[in-house]
């Protein structure tokens, strides 16, 4: 599916003293099969924006088109949209409620109108996708570890077969390996099932490692919308709006400043290691040739 956000604006409590413009003239197209990262400081409007994507919040200005149809038109099947766009909130494990993992994951597909057996089939498939095998089906979701709970909650959304999965800080509060597990899972869903993903995150490193496009929000506006290497070169501007670049970006920028012939727009560790080694080897070779020359002359 293609989701097109067209000059969207949202004002909280319009007409009162608490009036606050949270989103301002947002234009954004999320194409089929994309993996997009969304970053921005606390209060920049990320969470408000993602809640528009499945129609949970209705914009006060502008429109949203899904595959060319305006979702604010009368008669638009908004319930269907909420299945097609799966929204995973912050700390989704707080929303687990049922007595067993399987019945919890079944909640979405059942609501969608599937029969009990069909819902179970979908739920099992979703649990497998997040790495929870049959042995977890009858367990209480509350006795799972933090990372497992979060994956169970994500399974609950996946069971509705979304075409676009939007996750609001899915790795907040997780240990490094738990973080990697969730991110690998998203990568797998993206690659194997072709699900489009919007990943909202405060971790610049995670965003740099996984997404192919970054949207930067600041005070309700889109500041940048570009590939990671072109976003993270704006180190100073990013810091001004409460963000940062991955540590690797700083390393490469500083090396370039001190005379190394490296590309400062590199954003991942492996790419950086590759570049630094290449420069190193070239310099070594040159030195060797010069030294050989000196040797021969002597």
């Amino acid at each position: 599916m293609e989701l097109q956000i067209d000059h969207l604006g949202y004002t909280y409590h319009p007409g009162t003293t608490f009036e606050r413009k949270a989103l301002d003239d947002i234009c954004l197209t999320i194409g089929s099969g994309e993996f997009i990262g969304m970053i921005g400081h606390t209060g920049s409007g990320k969470s408000t924006l993602v809640q528009h994507m499945n129609g949970l919040i209705k914009a006060t200005e502008g429109r949203i088109f899904v595959d060319g149809t305006n979702i604010y038109e009368d008669g638009y099947p908004i319930r269907e949209l909420r299945c097609r766009v799966g929204l995973v909130f912050q700390y989704p494990e707080y929303q687990l409620f049922d007595t067993t993992v399987l019945s919890d994951v079944c909640f979405g597909p059942k609501n969608k109108g599937l029969s009990g057996e069909e819902a179970k089939e979908k739920a099992r498939e979703a649990m497998r996708a997040v790495g929870l095998d049959e042995s977890y089906e009858m367990r209480s979701p509350f006795e799972l570890s933090g990372g497992q709970k979060r994956r169970a909650a994500i399974a609950g959304i996946l069971a509705m077969d979304p075409e676009l999965l939007v996750l609001d800080e899915p790795t907040a509060g997780m240990d490094p390996e738990g973080r990697d597990e969730i991110l690998h899972l998203l990568k797998k869903l993206h690659e194997e099932r072709g699900i489009s993903i919007v990943l909202v995150s405060h971790s610049m490193e995670d965003v740099a490692n996984y997404v192919s496009r970054i949207v930067v929000l600041d005070q309700g506006k889109v500041l940048w919308d570009d590939i990671p290497s072109r976003v993270f070169v704006h180190v100073e501007e990013l810091e001004k709006v409460g963000l940062a670049a991955p540590q690797v970006s700083y390393v490469m920028a500083k090396l370039a400043q001190t005379g190394w012939d490296v590309d400062p727009s590199v954003t991942t560790i492996d790419a950086a290691a590759e570049q630094i080694c290449k420069v190193w080897v070239t310099v070594q070779d040159n030195l060797k040739q010069v030294a050989d020359g000196v040797w021969k002359r002597n």
Partner: peptide, 18 residues
């Protein structure tokens, strides 16, 4: 132990290994 090191440390470690 399911932990990590800072990115700068990891990059240095990888360079050293190479």
């Amino acid at each position: 132990f399911r932990l990590d090191v800072p990115q700068a440390t990891l990059l240095a470690w990888k360079l050293k290994q190479r």
